[in-house]
Each structure stands twice: as C-alpha cells, then as structure tokens.
Design a binder for these strands. Structure first.
Lengths: 172, 172
DNA sequence: TCTTAATCGTTAGCTATGAAACGATAATAC
DNA sequence: GTATTATCGTTTCATAGCTAACGATTAAGA
C-alpha cells in the first residue's frame, strides 16, 4: 500500500508536500521526507512481493504468505512450539493457532503435546506437507531472486544491511 | 514475519543454509543468499512497522494501517473513487469496499455517485474523519522518523532509492 | 438501434488477523 | 503443601483481505 503518492522521480509530489504541511500544521522544513520515503517504500515493496508470491507461487497449493512461512519453519526445524512460531513470524499466537488448524485440515502438519510441560504444543510437518514445500520452495526462491534482481549484488548487500539495522534497532 | 532465521551478524545460520540446500536439492552455490536477505528483511521491517503503528498510534481510534491510509488519501485528495484507492493501496476493490463501509459506520467518510458515470463511486472524508487524521498524522510521522532514525540521512536516501527501483522494476 | 462486451462497485464465502477472555498446567511464595 | 502467580495455547468476536460471482451501467460493434 502507499501512504504517499510519488512522481516519476520518486519524490513526493510538491502538491502533496504542501498539502501535508498545510493540513497537518507541520512546517514543511519540519517534515522529514526521507523518513517518509523509507517507510512508504518498504511497505510498498513488502505488499507487492507478498501479493506476487501468493498469486504466482503459493496459490498453487492455496497457501498464504504466513502459512507458507510456517510450513517452511517446520520443514527446517522439524518441530516448533506455537509461541516460537508466533515470534518467528511476528504474528500473534492466535493467528498461529488458526493457521495451523487449517494446515492440519490439509494434513500438512500435526500437533503433539510436550510430555515434560503439558502446556506446550509442538507442531510438526507431515510427509505431504514436506512434498508441498519441496515443490514450492525452489519457485519461491526463484521469485526472490527475480524481485531482488533490480539491484546489483553490492546494492543487495547494502539494502540488506540497512534493513537489518532497522530490524535490530527497532526490535522487529 | 521471518521466512529465514539469522544469527547476530545478520547472516543466515550455516545450519539453515545447509538444510535449505539439502532439503530443496538446490546446490549451496546456486542459492542466492543476498536475494534471500533482501526479501526477508524488507518483509520483516514492514511487518514490524505495521504492528508498531497499529499498536502505538492507530489503535487510539481503532484504525488499521490500511484504513488509516485510505483516510489519509481522502484527506489529501478530497475525493477518490474506489478503484483508485485500491491501486494506491495495493489491495483489492473488495477490501476498499469493506473498509470504507466500516469508515462510513464511524462517520469518517461518505459515498457519492458520479453523476456523469453512475458506475463510479467517489469516497470523501467527513469533518469528523478530518479531525481524527489531523490528530493521528503528526504522531504517525513522528513514528516514521523514529523508525527511520536507525539510518543516517544519506543512508535513508540510499535505502529509499534502492527500494524505489524495486518498486519500479517489479511494478509494485 | 440493438446486441455484445467491458467496466465499476458490491456481495458472498472463505481464510487471516489481533485483542481479550478463558481453561489447563506449571512455577513461585509462604 | 496449599494458594497465588505466571505461562501456554485455544476460543471468541470483531475487522481485514482475497477470489469469484453478480447487478448495474456504459462503451463498442454491426
């Protein structure tokens, strides 16, 4: 999505700058337009790549971005508890609970209670779930490569590093 | 959310690299780990800032990121049709229809049919909606500045430019 | 003109999502 | 050892979000 509107050069329209300043009563030179661009562009790319992945790759097996991610986690780590999945994916435990219920219906994963602490539920991937992720992952990665190919190798490294700092500093 | 898991240096865990390569049957040197980092970090930051904004700023008036964005668009542009709002925000027309229905219930916006083409519905902001966005926007912008402050001014410009190229090349 | 095709917004039906409340279990306090 | 507190996952209930189907309207074709 796009909070702001940009012209062909990637700058905020002068008209919009003036309007924001006027309407919000923030003087134009107190508006941090670089911060605006960073936040807006990050959200826009994220929204775009989520839509593209779901449409072009994940829809083949009726998976959303998050359900794919959960399946990926289970594929790599074999067995993960609900709380950990929520943290890994930055969504609520309720969301994990619901999505894994759907994945369970499709027989892509199953639940098992930790015998040492019966409050904890572990999720694990089934053979069928494995088959699905092993079909989808190469296509997913190929799309990642395509999407990132707007940037050179060095630029990709730069972008990743800057974003990584935002993740760390903001504790995302 | 986080498709991949990273160590303290921001690299993918060696264990995970090996596992991906092994499970996906993609040779390690064919995996483009820079692309992986770029895509993952973008999504992670976007998810984090959306959650933070909704929790810290937008919840004061029960707005989601997208409903806030729609309200913003109407604030700046006075009157926008459904289809245009969908494009601006990279969501479906159905989503716009639903969210504006909620905004209408709260009396933050209202509908009017284009008399020249009766298929088109224009949305417009109410006085009450204006009051809400004028209260929230300065706080929203302040959070944008805080979130982006992990980066220097130059780095913000760099990040914005790289992301802008991804938006353009991928037509997001 | 009159039929066909295209476009617009809404609705229907589904999954996703979060906050809050809840029940079960474990850890802590005394 | 019992009472209190904390933690875990689920459920409930609301909104968000998608695709597909639909009804209304306009444009295009002959």
């Amino acid at each position: 999505m796009c909070i702001y509107t940009f012209n062909e050069d990637g700058d905020l329209l002068q008209e919009e700058k003036d309007t924001i300043s006027q309407l919000s009563k923030i003087p134009l030179d107190s508006l941090n337009l670089n911060a605006v661009s960073v936040v807006t562009n990050i959200y826009r790319v994220a929204q775009g790549l989520k839509n593209e992945m779901e449409r072009e790759v994940l829809s083949k097996h009726g998976l959303s971005w998050t359900s794919f991610s959960i399946l990926y986690d289970l594929w790599i780590w074999k067995s993960v508890e609900t709380k950990k999945l929520a943290e890994l994916n930055a969504v609520s435990k309720a969301t994990i609970s619901n999505i894994t219920k759907t994945l369970e219906k499709k027989e892509y994963c199953y639940r098992k209670t930790d015998p040492r602490d019966r409050r904890i539920t572990f999720l694990a991937i089934t053979e069928q779930g494995k088959k699905v992720i092993e079909e989808l992952y190469p296509q997913f990665h190929q799309s990642e490569v395509k999407i990132a190919s707007s940037l050179s190798e060095d630029e990709q490294k730069t972008a990743a590093e800057l974003l990584r700092r935002m993740i760390r500093d903001n504790q995302y």
